[in-house]
Design a protein around this nucleic acid. Sequence first.
DNA 1: ACCTGAACACCGTTCAAGT
DNA 2: ACCTGAACACCGTTCAAGT
Lengths: 238, 238
Amino acid sequence: MTSPHRSTDGRSRGGRPARISRQEILAAARHLIESQGVAHLTMRQLAAAIGTTPMAIYYHVKNKDELLLLLLDDYASSVQAPVLPDDPRERLFITACFMHDVLAECPWIVEILTAEDLLAASALWIVENILDSAIRCGLTPEQAVHAYRSIWYYAAGEILVRAASVSRRAEMDKPVYRDELFTQLDAERLPRLAALTDRWTDLTSRDTFRSGLDALVTGLLVMHGAGAAAQLSAETSP
Amino acid sequence: MTSPHRSTDGRSRGGRPARISRQEILAAARHLIESQGVAHLTMRQLAAAIGTTPMAIYYHVKNKDELLLLLLDDYASSVQAPVLPDDPRERLFITACFMHDVLAECPWIVEILTAEDLLAASALWIVENILDSAIRCGLTPEQAVHAYRSIWYYAAGEILVRAASVSRRAEMDKPVYRDELFTQLDAERLPRLAALTDRWTDLTSRDTFRSGLDALVTGLLVMHGAGAAAQLSAETSP
DNA sequence: ACCTGAACACCGTTCAAGT
DNA sequence: ACCTGAACACCGTTCAAGT
């Protein structure tokens, strides 16, 4: 960090007393996002919500990107770790689920994930847990990093795709396009899709995150020769 | 589709001759994206590139969202299908790779994927192929849809995360933050991460998409009782 | 039928100045 | 030290008018 901007919330010594603080800005930003949606988080609207000018915010925060990063970190540190099982395969699965669920609960995070780094400092314990579990399952450290990355791709993809489909459902003209697509299906060239036309919406609206994650974890362990630890968990359900 | 906007490129019969066409707009948009990056695709800059006013575009295209959708469809239809193997497990893997690679080649698609539907009409054969392969591997149609969705999450996540990390590398202040994170690691609480500090950048910059996909496919087939078809493919590499 | 011009309601950010 | 005001360089989109 550079400039006058304090990296921590150091007490100001001397000078004019601050009217707004970083914490106040973050709290207001979070409230704004949760009540109005992430699209309404603009420097101008945030300033209005606090009752100050847009430029006052720039004294406490470098720019909008840093604001988003701080927001992510703030959220991550407010989350409290769950009790985790000892069995490594189970712990791997549960931690990955937790990582996903925590992010999925605040869809505004999606905007940040694509723009910023995936990991806030206060969320590193999640990565640590996944790596440790994987290594205890018999993977080498390199394989564990690879496994973590695959899981992250899967989880991030699920969140992003679901967020997109939710926002699509909010508008009213998209279903039209999708229906159009499916009614014009060429049953000769696309027989499988044609046979599934009626059930597609139903099938794709189900939550299959856990089941797919289970498959991924199983495959990762099997493929890396940790077959002993790869036995199917109880969550298995098509 | 509504309004005066022609859904196909129907010839205008009578009236003033068109100065610009939908095709011309799409071609210009694609060129703009490829040369300047997707951030530069604005109605105004597009108009300038064509040599017309922003509002002229609105006669041919409903709004920016529709423009993006048309762009996606245009790209999908320009892609030609690869020769696919007969073995269903192999075909599943290859098709999924193809889907991923095609999208990964034009990172601007990322913006559209999160905003729009995942599937353009001209790309449905990919879904068809994945479903068909999965069913031939022994999955039920429902399980096949589920498998397709898991694969899609994984592929979309990989693309999005990679696109984000590329754009991060383009700027110069992000590595600082990431390095900061890793040097301040508490080796007591995060031993696995601490042990990997030096190799993290190297390990996470490797392309492990295929290996992870292989694991996912293996897991999906094993979990759904199609173990016979789940034998590891040759692509396996940590 | 196809396009233009002006305008509306926004953005993020910089810069010089005030207290 | 902390904040303000005015300004810059943008957005997407609407609306009434021109040819």
